[in-house]
Design a protein around this nucleic acid. Structure first.
Lengths: 320, 320
DNA sequence: TTGTATGCGTTATCAT
DNA sequence: ATGATAACGCATACAA
């Protein structure tokens, strides 16, 4: 494999001149530039990226930490990040964790190893304490509302989203509202739970612990929720569901079992993906793509503790 | 940032010994090993990945070329690749092309630059001729049935899939069958079209050019197909649709417009994603995750022109 | 405008 | 078992 030295030799110039030509620096006489370009062509020369990375101390690539890739949420956020990254000539490294803490830690390790220039944490498994040693001087963007921490963050206002949803359901005559979450832990879920409790308290409406359904990621999980719901003695008359996929599962299973929606059970969903439109699901639009775009913009920002908030918007349809 | 030389200094050994300890090579006396490890701890030393990459001539990462990330197809294939890659300590680079040829070419360029050790082309935009100069000695896996080419490939047997589907519809009493494709060009689509024509010819059934609907990626595209279908003078009584998402759009729009499924229009879908189950869509299971897994396995294989074929399986439901 | 020399941080070869 | 030294390939400060 030809290197810059051989090009210099063949072109009869120094390596620095070759480097200048390759990097389009000014102050190179046209004839030498041509000689270099010829030599490049002749030897089929191609720059070694790793040498550039080592020499420059950066790789122009950013790591994205996420648990899964086959979920619309993460597909959409990736799409947002990738679009923005492409604009700025950055590349994406994927760290798929499956919510495994050690895999997530490895991503931070890679950052320290300078394999990537920064990290976007779209969903976190480790405690902040565990990550702290990796954070100083590192360019990390969190996609959650980390309060008080001095770090970059962008997040959906899940608290307000749920509060709005609760209010909407209360004003539609419901007093017993349940909640379907991705997972119990994690800032985003906690924010939703906080909104859930705060609204119930504010309106002095009942709220039972087993009206909260966890581990709702996929369509199948929605089916499971219907079964769980049916077995409750005291059933909520409506559900706030944090994913259209899960809502779709609920609708499908409810139909099978003769549960009428919204008469027996109202569904207020989040995402507003095309499937919500297709199934006529009332859903809050969650700007996930935008979340991805903004996260990359934050990565580029010098300011090391900027933050961005995004809001949700209601699309009324037939399930409430 | 501390480097290996400073560790050597502090530990009172040579850099080679440090390197040996770091890489768990044998032949290092325990006391020196300890000295080194202490120094590592003391200086908070972390290896520079780019230096390793440069020195070793490889990066332990693989590039995945795909057009979009917010489509279930690509999410699933990524999931498959990522799972297998994780097992073998490989990392994923994403090259999102949006079907832009120059972006795709850039991925091949990066391979030559040794930024990645190999490439998985999950969907291709450039002609093979355009890619040929990049292929010699390069570890590239194509996810399509490239006939005759000496290269690694893994693909779904789309030809047989469509032929089976056609036979199924014919035997269900249909004689006029349409086809919804992602795109007109591309090996996978061409294979499906070939199956489409071959079956019609074999059964001597009619087949019109405008029974083929292109650019069907998302749910919205399914809606559009219904409109197009309605405006046809001579309408097919059934459609083979190469994505459950699109089928979902068709179902939704058909319902709105009072088109009965399968009475007025039968839908035979491909993917068998959960949404097919939820909407009771008859669908051929397409092992996309497996496709991703196999593509990575091929990448690892020495043999530079291995190939793998995967078949589709019918799940009968209510839309035919 | 161009060249020289050094740094980037590691691995690998070859002595000893 | 250990160390000196040469790759690996490029960028860049400094000199000219």
């Amino acid at each position: 494999m030809a290197n810059i030295r051989r090009i210099a030799e063949l072109a009869g110039v120094s390596v620095s001149t070759v480097s200048r030509v390759l990097n389009k620096h000014p102050y190179v006489k046209e004839d030498k530039r041509q000689k270099v370009l010829e030599a490049v062509k002749q030897l089929n020369y191609i720059k070694n990226a790793n040498a550039v990375h080592l020499s420059k101390g950066k790789t122009n690539s950013i790591g994205v930490v996420l648990p899964f890739m086959n979920l619309p949420y993460f597909g959409e956020i990736l799409q947002g990040i990738a679009g923005e990254a492409l604009k700025h000539d950055y590349h994406l490294h994927i760290f798929q964790t499956n919510y495994d803490k050690s895999v997530e830690l490895d991503a931070f390790h890679r950052l320290k190893m300078k394999e990537v220039d920064g990290l976007i944490i779209s969903s976190r498994s480790n405690s902040l304490d565990a990550l702290l040693p990796f954070l100083d001087g590192a360019n990390v963007v969190f996609c959650e509302n980390l309060s008080g921490e001095k770090c970059k963050k962008v997040f959906i206002n899940h608290y307000q989203g749920v509060r709005n949803g609760m209010e909407y359901l209360y004003s539609s005559g419901h007093t017993k509202i349940g909640l379907c979450l991705h997972r119990k832990f994690g800032t985003n879920s906690e924010e939703r739970i906080r909104g859930f409790y705060d609204s119930a308290k504010a309106e002095k409406h009942p709220l039972l612990e087993d009206w909260i359904f966890n581990d709702c990621y996929k369509l199948e999980d929605g089916r499971r929720v219907v079964h769980q719901w049916e077995e409750l003695e005291n059933k909520p008359t409506s559900l706030i569901v944090t994913s259209d996929q899960v809502s779709a599962g609920i609708l499908s299973e409810a139909k099978k079992r003769g549960i009428r929606i919204p008469e027996d059970l109202a569904i207020l969903s989040f995402d507003n993906h095309p499937i919500a439109d297709a199934l006529d699901i009332t859903s809050y639009d969650v700007p996930i793509r935008k979340l991805g775009e903004e996260s990359f913009k934050l990565f580029l920002q010098e300011d090391s503790f900027a933050s961005t908030v995004l809001e949700t918007i209601l699309y009324e349809r037939g399930t409430v």
